[in-house]
Each structure stands twice: as structure tokens, then as C-alpha cells.
Nucleic acid binder design. Structure first.
Lengths: 244, 244
DNA sequence: CGAAACCTTGATAGGTATCAAGTACGGTGG
DNA sequence: CCACCGTACTTGATACCTATCAAGGTTTCG
């Protein structure tokens, strides 16, 4: 459920080929123990560099994707250019599932990302793989439910606070564990621009910026280098989410 | 995908028992051909009358539900009472799936509704049933994607127009088929109060009412008896959705 | 060091929420 | 059958939150 934007090991191997839209297909055996061996022919490992497109809305939906490492965002566009980022996904999450022959949204890597792609027909043949996908879809459907509440009913600050809480490792959906622990802080990385956060939260970039400033003034946030942010009091930030 | 609020046959048998919260459990064989026979022990047919609660947020998630006939809404509440209606479901749709042991939302029947409940463990044992559920979940996940766009990026009138288009039988998600057909009208029933529509669309009841009035003034809607509404020009209404 | 992208902040406008009556409708009981 | 009542809906006035427009500041990277 929780979005782990940081790779499991922080020493990322940067020797990967820059894949533009067609990624580097790595034919080979699956490292996923759940996958039966006859499937391997239809199983491909891919790597995407930061900010590369995995597929666009309308593309043929031949594969189902499972994230091994990294982060992916799904988005949709309205004809006049308005964009909504629909899901933010991390390791273990599944995307590319549709009932239609075409993808209903775009998928883009937010950071260097490793993915397994399973052929749609191949999935039909593997009960274990199907189960894996179904299980993730359940979790993601619940996440969408929460997100619908955010988009439909929460104020700007509540949305930003909820977003930040979702990034805190281990604190994602479960909410505040121990309350008022001393030194209840967390270092997180926000690998999204203000515009992307805005498109995810149904706001404008300026409103997101103001919400960040507000939280900073309140002493809840301290900015670090790059996209690093320290949440000084996770519990108190949680109070801003509107969910508690 | 499309919400069929009307039962397949309009002569509804009204001789059903009024079930309050505990529905009338109908043990018996499944009419669903896809279900294996050993499952029937864990398969229950239930009926809910209009406006009855199927389950509440936090209830034990023992069953997965499939709608045979009628309509169901899923909703969530924030602690201060704000409500978001998350999904509107019709025949064939699935609900009650979670990864947690408790339901993440409430489920309520919008009209007299017939449902099949499958025991969670029983589902695990049936590949065909699993497939059925997964297939519906895919469709519903896509529907949630569209709804996220609506909640995050659409104006009040666009939301109401999109909502109405979704109810038009056969025109639901596919969008406008033939354009500018003569006599391009549709009679629909809106079995939701203004408050419920508002909670679904992330608006207030007054704003929904104003949007309806706006569309009525424009000659797009004519009110009938009860909750009946005539859409005078489906194609033109479609222009209001922001999606075309 | 310089350019570009990104972020912050301010001023203003606009859309929707909120508050407040008033109206229409359906159901109930006399 | 009609009057009454409660619920739901409509409409108006106003306030507030967020979008929009605009400028300036900061960071990062070549």
C-alpha cells in the first residue's frame, strides 16, 4: 500500500541503457518464484530510466506490468490538456490491466525502474500469476477509494498532508502508529514536481506550493537537498490529513 | 461498465421480504454457470430492499459480492461527517473485495437488489470464480480512473453531465456512438437524491441542483414523474462532459 | 558563471460552498 | 378526495477557497 519511492538499495546501478519509449527488453528467466517456467517465454524484464514513458493512453494493452523496483505514475489527459495523475505505484504494484484492447491511461517511470511484463494470454494460463495480480488489484482498488475521498472531499492542505503521509515509509495507509513518540520525524524524498503533485491531488501547482509553505511555517517540514524533505512531526502532520 | 439502474425486466417481483441489516439468506444452488458445484455450500443468494445497508465500513470482510440485479453504492465517511460515494455498481459488478480483514467502505442498495455472496475462502478455491471477479475488478479499476479525472479536474456542470451520460443505457463509458442522430434522446431514472449525487461527484447538493437547472434551461433535460428524466439530446449533453 | 527549470509569493478573479428562504412533491390520515 | 406534513428540491445572497495571472527568487546543472 505504501509508496516506497526509494529503491531497496540506494546504490542504484546507473549503467543502464537510456530507453526512450521502446525499453530494453531483457528476455530471460523470471526471478519471480511465483511464475511457472513455461511462462518465461512470455515474460520480459525491462528497465526504464527516470521520466521515460512506459506506454501511452490508447496503446495496445498486450502486457501486464509488475514493478520490481522504482516508481511509476499513471495519468490521464482531457482533450483540452487538463491532466489527472491517477495512481502512484511502487514495488509490487501492478499496472496495465484493462478489459479493453487499449490502455486507458499513460504510464511513466518516476525514477529508474525495473519492471516485469507478462503477456496477457500468458497470465490467463498461470493461476499463481493471476492470484498475484488480483491481490495487488484489490489493494490498489482500496487505494483508489481513499483517493476518491481525497479528491472529492478534502481541502488543499488536507490533500497535501495526506500525500506526504502516504510517502512516509511504513506509515502509508495504516495511519499513525504510536502517537507522540519523541523525535517522531521522517526523512522522505518527493520525486515529483509541484505540477505533478498538483495533478495528482486535483490542485494547481501554486496551491500545492502554498500548502507546503504553510506546513513549513508551522514547523512541520524542513527542506533538504534536491527533493528531500524532513517531516518533523509525523503525528502532527497526520492531524492535517482530515482522516483522523 | 454502464450502470443499468433499471432491472432487466421492469415487472419487479415485489413479494420479497423486507430485510433490515441482516438480509434474508437464501442457501441454495448457484444460478451462475461459472461456479463449480462444491462451492455452493459457501454461496448464498441474498436480497436487499431499497436503501438497506449491505455492510458498513469496518465490518468483517467475509464475503465477496456479485450483483445479479439492482444497484449498489459504496461510500466512505471522514470523521467529521463528510461523505464520498466511491462507486455506483450495477448487475455483474463485484464489491466487498479487500486485502484487509475489514471492509474499507459501506455498501448500500439503491433499489431492490439481488446479490450472490461468496465466501472469501471459497473464492480462493475456484479458478473460474476468481477469473470472474478479476475481470470485473479490472473494469471497475478503469471506471475509478475515469472518476478520478472527474473528481480532480472537471467543473460542476461537466461532472453532472458525465454522471448523466454514465446512466444512459448502452452509452455509459463508450461515449457518443452515432452523432447527431435525429431524435437522439433517452429516458433515464436517477435513483439518487441530490445529496447522493453530490457526494458521488464531490459537490454540494445545491451545486448539483443548479447544474441540473442549467441543463434544463438549455433544453437538454425534461423532468418526468418521480426520478425519471428525459435527456433530449444525448450527443449535445455529451459535449458538456469535457471528455469530448 | 549563466541559463533553464522549478519554486515561491502576491494580487485578483471566479467557481463553488455556505447560509437562508421558499417551492414542489409524495404520502398519510381525516 | 382533500388537507396536511415532511422530505426533497430549487433559488438567491454572500463568503471563502482555490484558480488564475504575474513577477521574482532559488536551485541545479552544464
Amino acid at each position: 500500500m505504501s509508496l516506497d519511492f526509494r529503491p531497496a538499495h540506494d546504490h542504484v546501478d546507473n549503467d543502464r541503457v537510456p530507453p526512450k519509449h521502446d525499453a530494453r527488453w531483457t528476455l530471460g528467466f523470471s526471478r519471480d518464484g511465483a511464475v511457472a517456467s513455461p511462462l518465461d517465454r512470455a515474460t520480459r524484464h525491462l528497465e526504464f530510466e527516470q521520466r521515460s514513458t512506459i506506454f501511452d493512453e490508447g496503446d495496445d494493452a498486450r502486457y501486464v506490468y509488475v514493478i520490481l523496483e522504482g516508481a511509476v505514475m499513471l495519468s490521464k489527459l482531457l482533450p483540452d490538456g487538463r491532466r489527472q495523475i491517477i495512481e502512484l505505484l511502487g514495488p509490487g504494484d501492478v499496472f496495465g490491466v484493462t478489459t479493453t484492447p487499449a490502455h486507458d491511461c499513460c504510464a511513466e517511470a518516476l525514477r529508474p525502474t525495473r519492471i516485469v511484463a507478462y503477456d496477457h494470454h500468458a497470465v490467463d494460463g498461470s493461476a499463481s500469476l493471476q492470484k498475484l495480480i488480483t491481490e495487488r488489484m484489490k489493494a490498489q482498488l482500496c487505494a483508489m477509494h481513499d483517493h476518491a475521498v481525497l479528491l472529492g472531499r478534502k481541502s488543499a492542505i488536507e490533500r497535501v498532508a495526506t500525500f506526504l503521509m502516504r510517502i512516509v515509509p511504513g506509515r502509508g495507509g495504516a495511519g499513525c502508529l504510536g502517537r507522540t513518540e519523541r523525535n517522531d520525524q521522517a526523512n522522505i524524498r518527493v520525486p515529483l514536481t509541484r505540477q505533478e503533485i498538483a495533478d495528482y491531488l486535483g490542485l494547481t501547482l501554486e496551491t500545492v506550493s502554498r500548502a507546503f509553505s504553510h506546513l513549513k511555517r508551522d514547523g512541520l517540514l524542513v527542506y533538504g537537498r534536491h527533493d528531500e524533505v524532513t517531516i518533523c512531526n509525523v503525528c502532527r502532520l497526520c492531524q492535517y490529513t482530515g482522516s483522523h
